[in-house]
Amino acid sequence: MAFDVDSYASSAHRLRWDDLELDRFRTDRLSDGALRCLRYMSDVETHTVCYLRDLLVTPSHRDPEVTTFLTLWNYEEYWHGEVLDRVLEMHGVPTGPEHTHALRTRLGWQDRVAPMVQSTLANVIGPDFIATHMTWGAINEWCTHAGYSRFVKVEQNPLLTEILQRIAKQETRHIAFYNSQARRRLAESPRARRITRFALRHRWGIVGSGVMPEPEIRHLLNYLFGGTDGLAEARRIDAKIDTLPGLDGLHLVERELTRHGLR
């Protein structure tokens, strides 16, 4: 079923948390492992605007449906980062502009060069690049949604559960857009399927791996996807990827668990 961009545009909204008593975290505190994961997730959500920057210099910016979606996707993701920051603040973890500036500065010259490299490659590829972008987005959103769902099961904190479920509800619409676009564009173009498969096999990494240090990636994956239940969730995501035209058998998520030291 095609995604209704106009309906999404009219209903996209800031995530609400003003009705929640976040002060409860001062006494009902999260575990250290959970806070470390929240720091990772907040940093990645806050970095969404930088991903948007990179995408707007590619052929994706010429498609009005895509740009409408990306504008509102970025808006909703911004508030996801904000609520996670509020939770971190309740635990005395530093957040805010200074932390975000330090994160982006740490990326160094690679962050400055990335938009130019991506723009050059994407515009050489042409419109078929949009299929790769949409597929990449679908996989990242599947992983993000699964991560929030696993977080709820692992930490089992009622207030955190409510926050993460609200975020995950918005993420389901992001998934619907990317998935719909990816399926259509991959089905229409054999060249798009070849390019996308090559890009995923050689360049895709777990969400945040281009931003976060290796110890933090390894911790997040162990916390959320360690053990048999976590591996089963990773394989469920890989099974979804298998259903996309031309992308069966990649085993991307399970490969990432192995690459970062999970057994």
Rank of each mutant, 00 (worst) to 15 (best):
R197P: 08
A138L: 08
E77L: 06
C37F: 11
D6F: 02
A138C: 09
A187R: 12
D43M: 07
L186P: 10
W17I: 01
G205K: 10
L70I: 03
R185G: 00
N157H: 13
H219V: 08
S42L: 03
P115Y: 04
G227P: 12
T144F: 08
Y178S: 12
H133L: 12
R26N: 08
N222M: 07
D238S: 06
D85M: 03
L30V: 03
E89Q: 07
V211C: 03
H260M: 03
G147W: 03
L84F: 15
H13V: 04
Y75D: 10
N222L: 02
H174K: 05
V57F: 10
M1S: 14
Y78P: 06
R263N: 15
S149R: 00
E82M: 13
A192H: 07
A122C: 04
T120C: 07
N74M: 05
T243Y: 03
Q170V: 10
L160N: 05
Y40I: 01
P115S: 06
H260S: 01
F3Y: 10
T48H: 00
Q170M: 14
A199E: 09
V87Y: 05
G205W: 03
A102S: 11
V5M: 00
H101K: 14
H260N: 07
F177I: 01
Q170R: 12
Y178A: 13
H13M: 11
L244M: 14
Q170H: 12
E89Y: 04
R183S: 05
V44D: 04
E256K: 05
T132I: 07
D19F: 07
I206A: 08
L164A: 09
